[in-house]
Measured scan of single mutants.
Amino acid sequence: MQVTWGNVTVTFSNPEEAKKYAEKVARKLGGQVELHNGQFRIK
């Protein structure tokens, strides 16, 4: 499962870890987490 924002992509084998990481990054950037085609995207 991947977490992407800007031109950065981070890949996780565990979807739960990916979700936690995406939420943490979104909080830092003041963005929203979207699940899109099996990727968490931060907008």
Rank of each mutant, 00 (worst) to 15 (best):
F40G: 02
L29S: 06
G6P: 03
G6R: 05
T4N: 08
E34A: 06
S13C: 15
G38Q: 04
A26W: 02
R27L: 11
V3T: 01
E23Y: 13
Q32G: 05
F40H: 04
K24F: 14
F12L: 06
V33K: 01
A18P: 00
R41N: 10
L35E: 10
V25Y: 03
K24A: 14
G38D: 06
F12M: 03
E17F: 09
P15L: 12
K20L: 12
G6I: 03
S13E: 12
K19L: 14
K28G: 07
V25K: 04
N7I: 06
R27K: 14
P15Y: 15
L35V: 13
E16S: 11
N7M: 05
I42E: 02
R27Q: 11
T11A: 08
G30N: 10
K43N: 11
L35K: 08
V10L: 12
Y21P: 00
E16D: 12
W5Y: 10
Y21S: 01
G31S: 08
K28C: 15
T9L: 06
K20A: 13
E23N: 08
V10H: 06
L29T: 10
E17N: 08
I42L: 02
H36W: 10
G38H: 15
T9P: 00
V25E: 02
R27M: 10
L35A: 07
L29E: 04
Y21E: 02
A22W: 03
N14H: 07
T9S: 07
E17R: 07
W5D: 03
F40D: 02
M1D: 04
G38Y: 04
T4W: 07
R27I: 10
A18T: 01
I42K: 01
E23F: 12
K28N: 08
S13A: 13
I42A: 01
Q2V: 14
T4K: 11
K24T: 10
H36P: 01
E16C: 14
Q32N: 08
A26M: 02
V3P: 04
V10D: 01
T9D: 02
M1Q: 06
R27S: 09
F12P: 00
W5L: 09
K19W: 13
K24W: 15
E16P: 03
T9E: 04
Q39H: 13
K28R: 14
K28A: 14
E23K: 06
E23S: 06
V33L: 07
N14R: 07
K19G: 05
G38N: 09
V33C: 04
G6A: 07
T4Y: 08
Q39K: 09
V25S: 02
Y21A: 04
K20Q: 12
T4E: 06
E16L: 12
V8P: 00
K43Y: 12
G30W: 05
P15A: 13
K20G: 07
E17L: 12
E23T: 07
S13F: 09
Q32E: 13
P15I: 14
S13G: 09
E16A: 12
M1E: 03
K28P: 01
G31A: 11
K19H: 08
Q2C: 14
Y21H: 03
G38K: 05
K43I: 15
Q39S: 11
N14S: 14
I42D: 02
G30H: 10
M1V: 14
V33T: 02
A22T: 01
V10C: 15
A18K: 00
R27N: 08
K24N: 10
M1S: 10
R41V: 15
Q32A: 11
L35W: 09
E17G: 05
Q32Y: 15
G6Y: 09
T11L: 10
N37A: 05
F12D: 00
E34K: 05
V10K: 10
N7Y: 08
S13W: 08
R41G: 04
G6K: 05
E16V: 11
F40S: 02
G30C: 14
K43R: 13
V33D: 00
N37I: 03
Q2P: 03
E23D: 10
K20E: 13
N7H: 09
A26Q: 03
Q39M: 09
K19I: 08
Y21L: 06
W5E: 03
Q32L: 12
K20R: 14
G31H: 07
W5V: 14
G38A: 03
F40V: 05
V25M: 13
S13I: 10
A18M: 02
K20T: 10
F40L: 15
R41L: 15
K20W: 11
S13K: 13
A26P: 00
Q32F: 14
H36C: 15
E23G: 05
R41E: 10
T11I: 13
A18G: 02
A22E: 00
